[in-house]
Design a protein around this nucleic acid. Sequence first.
RNA 1: GCGGGGGUGUCCGAGCGGUCAAAGGAGGCAGGCUUAGGACCUGCUGGCAUAGGCCUGCGCGGGUUCGAAUCCCGCCCCCCGCACCA
Length: 962
Amino acid sequence: MSLEWRRIEEKWRREWEKDRIFEADPDPKRKKCFVTFPYPYMNGPLHLGHAFTATRIDVYARYKRMRGFNTLFPWAWHWTGEPIVGTALRIQSGDEEIIKALKEIDGVPEEELKKFVDPIYMAKYYTSEGKEAAKEIGFSVDWRREFHTTSLEPAYSRFIEWQYETLRKKGYVVKGTHPVVWCPKCKSPTGDHDRLEGEGVSPEEYTLLKFQCGDAYLPAATFRPETIYGVTNMFLNPDATYVEAIVDDEKWIISKEAAFKLSEQMRKVKILREFKGSELIGKYFVDPISGRNLPILPGWFVDPKSATGVVYSVPAHAPADWIALKDLMNKPEVLRKFGIDLEVIKGIKPISLIKVEGYGDYPAIEIVEKMGVRDQFDPKVDEATSIIYRKEFHTGVLKPITGKYAGKRVRDVKAELIEDFKKMGIADLMYDLPEKVVCRCTTRCIVKILSDQWFLKYSDPEWKKLAHEAVDRAKIFPETARAYFHDKIDWLRDWACARRTGLGTPLPWSPDWIVETLSDSTIYMAFYTIVKHIRKYNIKAEQLTNEVFDHIFLGIGDPDALAKDSGIDASIIREMRDEFTYWYPVDLRVSAKELVPNHLSFFIFQHVALFPQKYWPRAIGVNGMLLIEGKKMSKSKGNFLTLSKTVDEFGADVTRMTLILGAEDMEDPDWRAENAKSIDSKLRSLYRFINEIASMQGEDKPRSIDRWLISVLQGRIKAVSEAIENLKTRTAAEIAFFEVWNDIRWYLRRVDKPNPKTLKKVADVWVRLLAPFTPHVCEEMWRLLKRKGFISVAEWPVYDKEKVDVAAEESEDIIRSLINDTLNIMEATKKTPKRICYYVAADWKWKVYLEILRKALSARVEIRDVMRALMKDQELREKAKKISAYVGKLLPEINVMSEDQKRRRVKAKRIDEEALLNEAKELFEKEFKAEILIYNEDDSKRYDPMNRANLAKPYRPAIYIE
RNA sequence: GCGGGGGUGUCCGAGCGGUCAAAGGAGGCAGGCUUAGGACCUGCUGGCAUAGGCCUGCGCGGGUUCGAAUCCCGCCCCCCGCACCA
């Protein structure tokens, strides 16, 4: 099917390569444009998702190149991280599932697959396949700057070392601790992909409120420490195992599970004894706020696996607490078993502390009754809890009983309150998982605090401020993504930037750590500017000292001195510095929206940390995620499309155009084979059509319709250019491909014989407008049009104001709406006309019309004012009566017109409709297969049996059908 | 839950106060070309209407306005991200 495409595409790819038109070197005389694509991770082939993003970048690059920018689009490969190693291990262990996937989906041949037990081999394989695919789809890449990451590319590794040492010097890399979801059996963090249960669950920080009980504390866990003002009792699970333990320096009573968890959270835990919860039931504890003695009661809903297994009770605001109390009241025999007097329970009065709209003093009681919660084991308890919690958190206001917090909203005061409680020594904290998480190995996970971790200190407010500033200064495509960036910058916490396993660059000051994969891919665009020299001059990694990098990227130090130390020629160091300063900053970086919270934000953070403002990113584009036939692309769903297979099937241009027309902004494009087929046939007919135009001979005098076509083409040029500038690639392609074509269609429908010269002019522009999208076939058509050189570097069509002919455009609108109106009448009357008469408006109507339009431009017009002005004209004065009737009808019409429309019509001035319609007479005859008569409404000799002529208005000739 | 993006005609999508029955594409219909066509070209494609009009309509319910797909309020639904992972 795509045989013909392949021939064309291969030919032009070879030509481009031969002439090196995409290799870009600094040229101080030209404006530069530096675009980048986030290097893809090489644990598999490039797929259509990569292609979508990269095609958008390539379109932009090709456009800028045609606009005369010295444009650099480099490419590299990401090898850093664990999955490549992980996959290699799985292959080694004979994992059928992955072997099948690699064979069938990635298309890896058997004999290659065997070698994949070596992760490096695998990365190399996919890299070389990927490069082939990127070339096949026609990305305009300067391949001299290609590289891959990790210590296997020593110069790159050196670059990462420089980056991290510099960041550390600036205080942006710090040592710290970090809570992770942890499998106690595997003794490693349990990421989402390693879980049987609990996807998406992450550590939550609980506040522990410490209640004195004898010589020990009962640390009750809560998300709502403010409710301590309403505490009435404690709940322990009588059947669960608790321990008395020395935690750090205090004696705590907690569940046995909690003791283990705390021991993993950097606490010294020494268990003194174990006992059943029932032992403490009926005993009393002290509320540290009010000093009251309160009872410990049995609560079977208390889960010893959740946090500390100790729960304090706030029946006014916690449905679970209220219902548990109620359960006890209803079961005196249970109380008796624990030796608790029923009067103790009856004596417990809920204490209200939060005022919340829509509820009385005791929201928990209200909701329990409203929802008909049966008892503490009713699943509805959770729902009730969540409703009350949300409501009180967002809208609740604290009551006077809370002292200094009274009158404030819960949400606004929570953090302050926790701080205060910690200072008072009544609060502590622990991490736990809000839901059950189970590791692949079937072990239940806990939260562990890792120590000695290295972090990028993204929490640093000063750093965040710079990052926000960078976002404010950059163009963000689409604009709506700007808020997204700001939000994510605020939200980012410290990022653990080193790992123990996988491929990558060792942390220079602690080489048993490897720089984490997202953290080593933040400023590598700078490396593109010098990798060329490293290759060309065979510079060794060890020659690239920190001082050399400091000079190249930051301008620090003297090249001559550096040359002596590093052994790199001073001239080469200068060359590298020049190349960096020429290309930097990055003019555009684009990725899918999933990378905004991590990669793209890191990209911004690292740039503002390391580089001066003039080297901060200029523009960032964000796009949606590719769907295949309406579904998310995934290997397991069997709808995974690799780039090379798709290009094989449909050809590069078809693939590019289909992708680009799929979506823009943050919408998710949907790849459908049907669409690709349709684009395929359209591109073929485009080619035929251009061929036809190219072979046309002769030249006719330009008519209004020729001026029209050239004029609307100017609008198309402008629209396409603006769209690409704003990365509205779909809009741009849609206009360049379909709208221009439709314009030409109208032209052809409109004329009996097209003017070859007009069509050739249009084709010449049209092909260039399409070149960024479908470059191969456009090169081919460029030749058909007898043009020399590559269209890829031809001059982008210039919007020419001189060629815009508003009158011609408005004239065409008259013709079109006249045809529509005529058809409408034919439809309504079910008449097939033998004769159609058109009557164009009289001179005086035009005078009045334009006068009112002009007035309406500046203000809303009133009949009185208009009439007064019009009556100054002697000629009009004679028709005063007719005019006032006409104006009365006209005014509402004009007041409803858009400013733009009014301006256009004023600019178009008086249109000679009689001449216009006469010129279009053949068209009308052809369309309606009827005799066409055209008159001025004033024409006394007109044929007008129904007396319709007086209905004529400017822009709207009257119609009579026989 | 938090944050971001969305809900438009048969479908995909543009529009974001008047030019809107609503761009463009797909699908459907009709005609042309052709031995034939799922290939290509052209036109039509909400309903009603014997004169260029009217009615319904842009997730649901209210509101602002001379006028709302477009602005405001409330609600429902869908997609994406939420950290040691590329």
